[in-house]
Design a protein around this nucleic acid. Structure first.
Lengths: 196, 196, 196, 196
DNA sequence: GATGAATGAGTTTTCATTCAT
DNA sequence: AATGAATGAAAACTCATTCAT
């Protein structure tokens, strides 16, 4: 297993980065939150950026794994897509901190953001491949599976993020209870027309 | 009409903020890009934050206006929703800089971000009201119009953002040509099931 | 004339760099000594290194000018060499701080030191050209004017440095009084054999 | 005999200190170069400073021994002085790393430098005593043997240093071949007038 | 209205040193 | 004897903001 202190630092870093964003996050704060000296972080990570990138990669890895596991149980593309949405939203609900970071830091021209987008691109490819299979097997019908993948990703992600922040502003914490609502909405968007 | 210098500063600020994000953007750089002295910015704006907030508010205003104008021409909610998506995507395509800022700075706990989210909330209300009318007039059918509004907003925004950055990485600039692809995709998502 | 603050910073920097050497010198200390804020130094100089290099260049420039002026008054190479030694030693005596920096920072593989050595090389060329002329005019006789230039430079410089530090340890300050002693010694080394 | 590890550390330390100077040299780098753990250095030396001082003392010791051995074979002061110059220059040529350190770290107000200068003072006394004997025995003639000792030390040292760095910049390594040139030059400076 | 030199609080990062194993 | 993870004090540098001109 990974070095104990590294784990502690990772935990603390997610909290702090999610709370403040990359630039506003202070290494001091991360160190304090982790209960280690600032030097200790630098003993394990070359820089703030490297720490952040490590974090993001791990986060995307977890999301991918989680979604892949959900898909693996299903046979037909439409069931797989359903499972994908379900897993994606639940993952974001359970890992709100990561979700915040994901959208906050996904876009931008900094190197770390570019690197990060590569990971997102991979995740989008996963979605796209499900769509593609559906098309090939005659289940789905769409002209632009790549754009559709982005749109679905955006819908599923922003629903959760918006909910997180709106609940935060009302200081309620019962987000898990609202998961079905969000899943249902995105499922409808994808599988049924809004129009009667 | 607004003071000439203010306009110049606004223009420059959008560029710089979009390129670097709020924190990494330097007032020096904005001043240089605007061709004014740094002090001049502070003569017109109290702070970096105020400049940014002014910018974002104006941006959201423009987006709202643009969408509202699109809707106004239509009668039925479904036509209105169609027009809304169309206008939203075209606006983001035409104002890529603003689009970047929008998603980059929409989430976070800083005061400026909270303020900004208020504007987004208003925009989401606009979408929601179209959905609501559709329900009332028996055109639409959905359990959670609020969540649906978020999902639609996310789908339409992320499609464009993802496209912008993916084109940037390939150094092509022909994003306007791809607008129909994106509009079509989101329209399908909203109006037709993916499933045959 | 040069900007007032720049001048003040230069003055302070010579003091501090000479006292502590490049690495041990703190920008804080220089700022305090100059009576300006640390930021002011960085407003005028890009980095500690740039400040230092500027300083050294100016120092070598002054030394060169001073020696050149001494030489200019003389006709024959031997008179010129005499004047050169005289001027060099007096300059070091008057500008002890600079003399310290000169020897302390002349050697090393850092970029700033390499740059600095280029200036010293130029100064050595000046000495060498006097020697060369002496040879051509039949006044001097030597096999390796380049090495001789280094040797003379070393003799004249180290004599003064050693004296500065030995006086410092005895807390006496009367170095100017000892200048003739040093000049005489180096003159003898160059013009008369030690051997009777 | 000295502990094996101590020897290894010394070797590595000379390299690293000579390459980077005292301040820029990193204990990590020395440890790596020596192939031991950082803690091991601290097991054998109390501090970076102590390691450095030990090094310098040993270096000066070796120089002194080498020169003393050269002198011991000669009888007359002028032969002794000749041998001294010869030994000094050859020692610097053979121990370039040490030579660099010697001049780089000889001057300055830090405690380690003061300590080091004590050793140099002793070496200068050795030179001075040869001069003094020459005067007493009627071979030499000079007003200020102490200053003359400094001047000779400076000439002999700087000649080599300047050559080392100028060859380094041209990436040639044949310094040993140039030793006679340098010895000859300093010998002339000391024993024969430049003037015909 | 406009300017840009000056400021100093705030941040990342480095590295000698320690100490439990 | 030897190790190397952990530490925290120290330093270079940044940049939003101010203000005299």
């Amino acid at each position: 297993m990974r070095h104990e202190k590294v784990e502690v630092i990772f935990q603390a870093a997610v909290e702090v980065f999610a709370e403040s964003g990359f630039d506003q996050a202070k290494m001091d704060e991360i160190a304090q939150a982790a209960g280690v000296a600032k030097g200790t972080i630098y003993y394990h990570f070359k820089s703030k950026e490297e720490l952040f990138v490590g974090l993001m990669n791990e986060g995307m890895e977890k999301l991918s794994d989680c979604v892949r596991r959900g898909i693996a149980l299903k046979k037909s593309p439409s069931e797989q897509l359903e499972a994908l949405l379900h897993a994606h939203i639940l993952f974001f609900v359970k890992n709100g901190k990561l979700a915040k970071l994901l959208l906050n830091e996904a876009f931008g021209t900094k190197e770390r953001q570019r690197q990060f987008r590569t990971k997102i691109r991979e995740y989008l490819n996963l979605i796209e491949s499900v769509l593609q299979q559906g098309i090939e097997q005659g289940e789905f019908q769409m002209a632009h599976p790549r754009e559709m993948a982005s749109a679905i990703f955006g819908a599923a992600s922003v629903v959760v993020l918006q909910k997180i922040y709106s609940l935060e502003e009302n200081q309620s914490e019962e987000i898990e209870a609202t998961a079905p609502t969000m899943i249902e909405s995105v499922q409808q968007l994808v599988f049924h027309p809004l129009i009667k």
